[in-house]
Structure formats: structure tokens, C-alpha cells
Design a protein around this nucleic acid. Structure first.
Lengths: 200, 200
DNA sequence: GTCTATATTCCGATAGAC
DNA sequence: GTCTATCGGAATATAGAC
């Protein structure tokens, strides 16, 4: 897709999807209006329903994509048989921060919408076995820590993802977006170090 | 307030506020309906506008309370002149987790609404000087760390607050709510320990 | 102060022409 | 496939009786 340009080259369907990703992610399902999406994509409101039937159906497509993006980044790394624990930490921090620097409101969007309708979207994650039975968790247990491996996973996700969830507040605290982004980039190397300290 | 009982003893105004806290926090501003709030408080829809003029005005009152609750818990501790750095860590972890065990969706509610309308609500926090110039930050700087003190603050908030932001996902991962709560209680002692390890 | 009924605005969805 | 115009329902807010 051409950077910064209107998506004149995309199909109508893809233009609507692109706009829907933007509007839903920025405002959340309830505050997003189909009229916003139509305007953003440069097409007519009627076409949205022609292609996607309803706001709800369009949203489900976006939500599925976003959930896969958020969890699909980490689950393959957790499940990898070949890499050592320490290397997994490096990979998770780096790939997650790279993802979130480009998509800073991905986590709060997904987590908010899951909380709003857990019965519908929590199952979409379907991560229970894939996480609890993962190689990563087994590698943690092999270390004979005196705390549950869940604590380590929570800490890793916490120090990695939280700064993006709190970006609107932290960014002002730190100064501006440039300085915020610079700190986040530093954290790609720092996070694995901090987590490794918790493994002794 | 009587636990688990209908608030028959409260004034009408306070009954509406109580219901508004619940409905807004659970659903967010956009998905909350004034009819939900009226029903929840056992009064009539017209009375909501009689007392609070509009949905927006009522929401602003709730939002102000919630922001104060979330940031008012930590700012006094950060600013305390008497306590050592290590003791501050103990206090923050304990008081925050106690708060969040009772109000688990406080952080995601506040952070979502700030993100949805940063120009309106980010200023409500108004924490820039109170945090950056705080005793806590000065104590961190006195430690001559080789990373920015912001990293430590972010880590502290990340490992403390994030598990509550991700509660709907983590709770299923861990098992059930009881087990989730038990882990969170453990973290009151673990978090200060982990952060202290980052100070060397 | 509290209610019922209603006004008004907004929004998702569709009809129908091209 | 795409548009304009509009329907029908939902949600906020108000009028007016008690």
C-alpha cells in the first residue's frame, strides 16, 4: 500500500476494511459509526452494508485480525522447541515492541473489547492450552523457581505491553512522542535483562 | 453502604451516581445507555436529567472520581518526603493491588476513556510535574542507575497494573478467578522484590 | 421530586434509480 | 457496483401532569 496516499489502488472492499481497522481501533466498537468508516474510506454508507452486511459483521472481521496480530506474535515464540528460554525473551521483547511501536493502540483495543464482551471474544483468543502447555512454560518450570511461572509471564507481558496501554499518559509524562518512542526502543534490550534477573 | 443490598437508604442523587459508576465502568461511555443507569439505580430516566442535566455531565463526574482514585493512590506515596525508596515500593505494590483487587477494571476504564478523548481527559490527570519532580524520581536518580528512572517507574506500574488490565484473558489462562486473585495477592510481596533487583 | 408520555436527534440498514 | 434518499428503531433529552 502506498504510504500516506489515499488508497486509490485498493478494491472497494479493501478500502472499507482499511477504514474500519482505523476507526474501530481508534474509537472502539460502540463509539465508531458506520458513517465514519464510510467517510474515511471515501465510499458511500450503503456500500458498507452491501459488502459487509452489518456493522457487527465488519467489526468481527477486524477484531479477528487484531486478536491474531496481538497473540499471533507471541504464541509461536512461546511454542518454539528449538530456542532456549533466554533467546525467547530476546525475541518476544524485540518483536512485540516492533509491533507495538507501529500499532500502539492494538493492546488496549483488543483488551477493552474482550472485556466488554468476554463471552464472545475471550474464546477467540483460545490461548489456554497453547500457553499453559507451551515450551516456554516448561522451560520456566525446569528452572525450579520459587514462584509460579505465571508470575514471570505476567511480568514479561506487563513491562512490555503496559507502556503502550498507558501511552497517552506516559507520553506526556516523558515529554513527547519522540522521547517516548526512544525509551521504548531502549526497552527491547532492557526487558530481557530484567526478566533474566528474575530467573535466579 | 450496606453490602449487597439495594441502596434504599441513599438519596436519589447518590443512587444515580452509584449506578452510573457501575454502568460506565463496565461498558465505557459510548456503550453505556442512560436507560441502563436509570434501571440500575431503580429510578426513572427523567430523574437522571433532572439531577445531572446530561449523560456527558454525569460521565464527567464519574470520570473525575475514577481518575482521582487511580492516580490519587500512587501520587501521595511518590511524593512522600519521609519514606525511603524501598519502603515506597512496598507501599505502592500493596496499596495498588488492594485497590485493584476490589476495582479490577478501574485501570482499563480510565486508560480507554483517556485514549478515546485525550484532549479532554489527559489534562485531568495533570500528573507531569507531580511525577517527574517527585521525591520518588529523585530517589531513583540518586541511585546512579544506568537507565532512565522512567524505565523503573514504567516497570513498577507495568508489573502491578497490567495483570488487571488483562484480567479477562489472564484469569482464564490461570484457571479461575480465585486462583487469579491468589496470584495477585502473592504479588504484593513479590513486586517490590523484583523492582529492587532492578536498582543494582 | 417523581413520574408518563413525547419530542428530537442520531444511527444502522435498505429501497430503488442508474 | 455505486449512488441518493429514506425508513425505522434506538437513545438522549424534555414537557407537563401529579
Amino acid at each position: 500500500m502506498a504510504k500516506g496516499k489515499k488508497n486509490l489502488d485498493l478494491s472497494t472492499e479493501e478500502k472499507i476494511m482499511e477504514a474500519a481497522r482505523k476507526v474501530f481501533t481508534e474509537k472502539g466498537y460502540a463509539a465508531a459509526r458506520t458513517r465514519d468508516i464510510a467517510e474515511e474510506s471515501g465510499i458511500n454508507l450503503a456500500l458498507l452494508n452491501y459488502y459487509f452486511r452489518s456493522k457487527e459483521k465488519l467489526f468481527e472481521l477486524v477484531m479477528l485480525e487484531k486478536v491474531n496480530k496481538l497473540f499471533g506474535t507471541i504464541i509461536p515464540i512461546l511454542s518454539d522447541e528449538k530456542t532456549e528460554l533466554e533467546e525467547k525473551l530476546d525475541k518476544i521483547a524485540e518483536s512485540y515492541i516492533d509491533l507495538l511501536l507501529v500499532n500502539p493502540d492494538l493492546p488496549i483495543f483488543v483488551l477493552s473489547e474482550i472485556r466488554r464482551r468476554p463471552e464472545k471474544f475471550a474464546q477467540l483468543v483460545n490461548a489456554k492450552e497453547r500457553v499453559t502447555q507451551s515450551v516456554f512454560m516448561k522451560q520456566l518450570m525446569a528452572r525450579k523457581l520459587n514462584v509460579s511461572p505465571f508470575h514471570i509471564l505476567i511480568n514479561l507481558l506487563g513491562i512490555t505491553v503496559f507502556p503502550f496501554v498507558a501511552k497517552p499518559v506516559l507520553s506526556k509524562l516523558i515529554g513527547n512522542e519522540e522521547q517516548y518512542d526512544m525509551l521504548m526502543k531502549q526497552r527491547k534490550e532492557l526487558i530481557p535483562m530484567w526478566i533474566k534477573m528474575m530467573l535466579v
